[in-house]
Design a protein around this nucleic acid. Structure first.
Length: 136
DNA sequence: GCCAACGTTGGC
DNA sequence: GCCAACGTTGGC
């Protein structure tokens, strides 16, 4: 079982959009490091959903329902992949970037080191810590 | 193969 | 709105 964090601008696709639909295909990733992380995702892995830009907070949890397959939005370019995600629970208290920065146990997550990466792995302790900070 | 120029992302 | 960080492109 692995743990991940995915990032999206809420103006493009928000947690509330995701929660309403219940599931989504995580398409449009066009960065190689993020692509490799998508390929590493297995069905049932735990995922956190982060709002970049305006909210800058982890909003809720999800899980992987289908592992990496060809991203249909990439046309004939076979390189790019997507996964399917199912929405789970909203965090009672969204965990802001400031909170994450102030937590020494989360100092090494990729969000801190490379703010532009849109799909990143977490360790189980990091994942658990964010859930706890979020009130789950 | 190097690197300057450019475009994009995202925090502030 | 600005700018730092990063990735990509293209001239040489």
């Amino acid at each position: 079982m692995q743990y991940w964090l995915v990032k999206q601008e809420p103006s493009a696709y928000s947690w509330s959009d995701f929660a309403k639909e219940g599931r989504t295909s995580w398409t449009g990733v066009r960065n190689n490091q993020a692509r490799l992380n998508l390929i590493g995702m297995k069905r049932g892995d735990h995922v956190l959903f982060y709002h970049s830009v305006s909210d800058k907070a982890v909003m809720g949890t999800a899980c992987v329902s289908r592992q990496a397959y060809h991203d249909p939005t990439a046309g004939d370019d076979e390189k790019w992949v997507c996964v399917d995600l199912v929405a789970k629970k909203p965090l009672p208290f969204p965990v802001t970037l400031i909170t994450i920065k102030n937590c020494s146990a989360l100092a090494n997550i990729a969000l801190m080191r490379n703010s532009r990466l849109s799909v990143m792995p977490l360790t189980k302790p990091e994942y658990d810590r964010i859930l706890k900070l979020g009130g789950l």
